[in-house]
Design a binder for these strands. Structure first.
Lengths: 168, 168
DNA sequence: ATCGGATAGTCGGACGTCCTAGTGTATTGA
DNA sequence: TCAATACACTAGGACGTCCGACTATCCGAT
């Protein structure tokens, strides 16, 4: 009878041990935090995208749709979208190109600033946003895999981190 | 005198208010957690990559180097690298291709399994790993922008999340 | 009134990630 | 023994992100 499989250890905890063993104690916790963040984001993104896939949109495009969904006029300038989502202007161009190809949004000239372009949510886009949100809420957001206390603690700590980095 | 700029609100908190206002209370906290995670990861990744840029490596390639750095033999099979880093095999191929072009690692045939390929850390790669780590420790990991308590709490909560998702 | 710096958007390129498909090689079970 | 299955790796393509460069437009300071 062969030995049982080695129980897989937490790779983050293992890396932290290596850090400490090399005299990098002062940085070990920060390294663990950053590494955990990377992995957790990958996990969360994968869960979200698997729900969105049948709707033909990615999380990046879904975020654009929801921003328009909640905007009073149903339209926003490209630049404002980029600022709100904290992404580069070219990422907005990319997302809007694809949303426009799918007839979910439409580009419109800005009425008073000829440099700017408004992105307008179309009925089909509004409907998709509502349906995709229902399903995301049920399958991911309502059951994120953490206790309510831990969810609140996570949001709070990450808000501090974002605030410290000038995110808002 | 014009009105002062609107104080920028936390976009995550704003989205959560919208969620609640639309009757999605049960999912609002989960949505906030996932969204925070995405933004925080972008921030952390940007900080890390700005330190690594002068060394000519990205975080993905740095992670491969460190895995080899801590391995007893200084070499690992491609498949094991992918499992440890939780990335797709093709991502490992991509990273190793670039590390090999930079003479930081080398591909070697596996001595007993002809399907497998070993990735071996070269002296230049070991040196780069040590230097880049020193700088990362100083500039990012030792000052992650959170109190030590919050760092510990973040690591702990994310570990639960990762464990629940089968990450280890 | 005009000139120069800021702003809005796009294009092309680099990179990491995933997915699907395909080629070898190991292992297992009938 | 040998056929079916599992595994290791690579190729090609889609997508999102960033960066640098570029054009068009706006605005403030001289």
């Amino acid at each position: 009878m062969p030995a049982p499989d080695q129980l897989p250890l937490d790779p983050v905890a293992e890396a932290r041990r290596h850090w400490a063993a090399h005299g990098w104690e002062a940085a070990a916790d920060g390294m663990a935090a950053v590494t955990s963040l990377m992995r957790a984001q990958q996990i969360a993104l994968a869960r979200v995208e698997s729900v969105l896939r049948p709707y033909g949109v990615t999380f990046a495009r879904y975020e654009v749709l929801m921003l328009l969904y909640f905007s009073r006029a149903g339209s926003l300038p490209m630049a404002k979208i980029g600022k709100r989502l904290q992404v580069h202007a070219t990422s907005v161009t990319n997302a809007v190109d694809r949303l426009e190809s799918a007839d979910l949004v439409r580009r419109t000239p800005h009425p008073t600033d000829r440099r700017a372009t408004l992105v307008e949510l179309l009925p089909k886009g509004r409907e998709l946003a509502a349906k995709a949100t229902e399903e995301l809420n049920d399958q991911v957001f309502a059951a994120p895999g953490l206790s309510p206390d831990n969810v609140a603690s996570l949001v709070e700590v990450l808000a501090q981190l974002r605030h410290g980095a000038g995110d808002f």
